[in-house]
């Protein structure tokens, strides 16, 4: 069986799903309109913020350590896999959503893009 190649950042960015783009430091550089609409954040509010601001408190440490590991080894166990996680909205509420993260190296720097598709209410995170 041949595993299909993950979609490109450009494809995700211009897709219909909520999308967030981060630079090699893990700082948000862009979000799309769908993301703004569902989670309430404006691009101005998030640009330059660490990705962990849209993650629940309990995930932040693991996220940072995992991000650091990718920077030291360029290997990750979570890229290109659908992950059921919670996303923090601008109003502080949490929405269970499917995160699909990919990484692309552009001009010697890694860029990270993720779609955060909200799941029906009542779906447990990573259940």
């Amino acid at each position: 069986m041949v595993t299909p190649a993950p979609p490109s950042l450009e494809a995700l960015r211009h897709g219909a799903s909520p999308f967030v783009l981060a630079d090699h430091n893990g700082l948000i550089v862009a979000i799309n309109a769908a993301f703004q609409q569902i989670y309430g954040w404006s691009e101005e509010q998030l640009r330059g913020q660490p990705l962990s601001v849209i993650l629940p408190e309990a995930f932040r440490m693991s996220h940072q350590l995992g991000f650091s590991r990718f920077q030291s080894s360029e290997t990750s166990t979570i890229l290109a896999h659908p992950l059921r996680l919670k996303t923090i909205c601008q109003d502080g509420s949490e929405i269970v959503s499917e995160h699909f993260i990919i990484a692309e190296k552009q001009h010697e720097h890694w860029l990270f893009g993720a779609t955060l598709t909200p799941l029906p209410q009542g779906t447990p995170a990573e259940a």
Binding site: L65, F67, S68, R69, Q71, S72, S73
Partner: peptide, 9 residues
């Protein structure tokens, strides 16, 4: 970050 990554590994 690299140091943290190595420690985590």
């Amino acid at each position: 970050r690299c140091i943290l990554g190595r420690l985590e590994t």
